[in-house]
Amino acid sequence: MRSGHFKESIPGLIMLSDSVPVWVWSGLLLVALALAPYAMNAYALSFLILILITGTGALGLHVLTGCTGLISLGHVGFLLLGAYAYAVPVAKFGLPPLLGFFFAGAVPALAGLVVGLPSLRLKGLYLAITTLAFAFIISHLIIEMSWLTDGTRGITVPRPRLLGLDFDSDARFANLCLLVAVLTLFAVLNLGRSRVGRALIAVRDNDIAARAMGINLEAYKLKAFLTSAFVTGIAGALFGIYLSFVSIEGFPFLMSIEALAILIVGGLGSALGTVLGTVFIVLLPEASRIAFGLLGSQAERLFSLGAHEIRSVLYGVVIILFLRFEPRGLLGLWHDVRRLWVNWPLRY
C-alpha cells in the first residue's frame, strides 16, 4: 500500500502520473481501443466513434468552461464552423484533407477570438447567452453565404485520405478519431501542468484575485476561447466526416446543452471527468433502451407509440437522480471507488 506522496522536485510534482500501473493500464487501454474497431460490429463501432468525437468536442468545451470557468452555450457554433471549414475546401474545392483539418481548427479559432471579446466584460449567464447568440448568428451566416456554403442544401463530405492512408472504412476512421481524441486529451492534461493552464484555473477560481496576481485577464480569456474553439472545430470536422453530410440541421442547438451535461455529469473541471461524462451521456440512450427492453415486449407493445418518449423521460430522470445523489459527478464516484479499492478493508 502506498502511504503518502513525497515529491522532491517541481517536475515530479506536476507530472501527469507517477504511478507505473496507471501508465501501463492507460497504454493497454489505448491499444485495445485501437484494435477493437476491427472486431466490433458497425453499430457498436458507431458508438465508439461517437464517443471519440464527442469526447474531443467536450474536451474543447472543458478548456473553456471547466478550466477557465467561462460558460458557453454556443459551442455547437464552433462545431458547425469546423465542419464547414473542412467541408468547403475539401469537398467543394478539392483541397487536401490535411489542409481541411487545418482550416477546421483555424477558422473556429478566429471566430473564438471574436466571440471571446465580450467575455472580457461579461460574466456567468450573461456570457453564456451571448455565446448562444453567436451560435445562432453563425448558423444564420452559413445560410446567407450560400455562394460558399451551398446554404441550406448541405455539402456531401467524402472520407479522407491522409498521408497515403485511406480512412474509408469505419474501423480506420475510428483509429483516426482515436488519434485525435488521445492527442487532445494529452494536450488538455498537459495544459494543466503549464503556466497557461494554472493561469486559466486562477481566472476560474477568482478573476479579480488572478488579475491582482499579475495575470493578464484579457490575454488568457482570449487564449482559452481560441484553444477551445480550435479543438471543438476539429471535432466538428470529424463529426461532419462521420455524418458524410454537413448541413445546419445536422448540428442542433441541443448539442450545446448536451456538451454542458457531459461536463457537469462527469465532474466539472477535470479532463478525466469529461471523458467519463462523454461515455455516460453517449451511452445513456442505449442503456435506457436496454432497460426498456428488459421490461419485455409487452411493455413495448403497450406503449407502441410512446416508447420513445418514455425513454426520453427516463434519460431526464436518470440525470436528475444522478445529480441529486452525486453532485460531484462521475469523477466523485470514481474517487470513492478508488479510495475503497486502495484502503479496503479500512474506511479511509
Partner: peptide
C-alpha cells in the same frame, strides 16, 4: 438540491425540461 453547486442545479432544470417535453408528447 439546495446547497449543491449551482452548475449541478442548473443541469437539473435542463433535465427537467427534457422530462416535461417528452412527458407532454407522451
Amino acid at each position: 438540491m439546495l446547497g449543491e453547486p449551482v452548475f449541478a442545479t442548473v443541469m437539473v432544470t435542463i433535465a427537467l425540461a427534457v422530462i416535461l417535453r417528452a412527458g407532454a408528447m407522451l
